[in-house]
Amino acid sequence: MTAQNIVAADTDARPRGDVLLRASDLAKHYPLRAESLTKRRRVLRAVDGVSLDVRGGETLGIVGESGCGKSTLGRCLVRLTDITSGRVEFDGQDITTLSARRLRRIRPGMQLVFQDPQASLNPRRRAGDIVAEPLLIHRYGDAAAVRRRVAELFDVVGLASAHLDRYPHEFSGGQRQRIGIARALATSPKLIVADEPVSALDVSIQAQVLNLFADLQEEFGLTYVFIAHDLGVVRHVSDRIAVMYLGEIVELAATEALYSAPAHPYTQALMSAVPEIDDGPATVKGAGAHRRERIVLTGEVPNPVAKPTGCTFHTRCPYARERCAVEHPRLTETASGRRAACHYPLDGQR
């Protein structure tokens, strides 16, 4: 194990550039069908008042349980879906209400990688054509130039040129995800939003694809928004992490700070619920596994259509007090300099 392979815990992993992507008070609501004439139409607040910045070259992880709105947020950030309210700026330009035509000019700069490589690749097209498609759409150049670029992209993501003429079903899951990544890279984007890109893969393949993400970032200076439910994966890839619960960000912090001392009780519970591998005494690993006290949350995530009043987490929070049921906490700086949406944030008291 070489020393430079270890990410230092106390420094920011990568030098950060200017803000590339900024969301302000972003919301995405889905109206539900009325149950009767008399009742009011209910609204699913999938994303509710999310503000965040992503700086050039960094990886922002978004983590949360199913139904927390992390995927919807990802789609809002690249305007793959219309936004109910709030504002998204990409590279200094407000893209919240851009028309489809104007949006198309921005598209090459921001791409999406999906969870299920099987479902996101057209089964009737050859791998080479799938990767070439964005190049043709955005008029990259003549046929020869496109061919050269596709071959280059295949090389970059670790696929052989012999794979160009194969169909998606002839590939393994990991290779299919490589095709999806090559397609996303085709237009040389600045930003890639990856939605659970490794959750369908076996652990050994997952590690390969995660390494590919790391290499590509280093080589092309990419900025990632990395959405995942696996806390180990998110920790591995992210410089900063936003924790979501019921459509809101409850905590936003640098990775090491978040994992070593979560400020929001939900983050703490989430971390403590992850089953950890006990490698035993620090013989081989270099660092011994530290056991943490487990906080098993009672109950389940409430229905996002009928969110609890006050703090949305108060129904399951082990530290909830009266105020939490009434007053909605905003994501603000805590006394210890962390950003958490909590009236009574934890202060490293683990």
């Binding site: 270890i6 393949i205 590690a207 995660l210 920790r235 591995h236 994992y259 490698d279 660092a287």
Partner: peptide, 25 residues
Amino acid sequence: WGLLDSVPRVGGTRLRRLPTIAGVP
């Protein structure tokens, strides 16, 4: 070894690149 090493952990040292098992299952 490969299984244990290729899992990104929630605690301990953070590696820039994970040790992998080559190929596919």
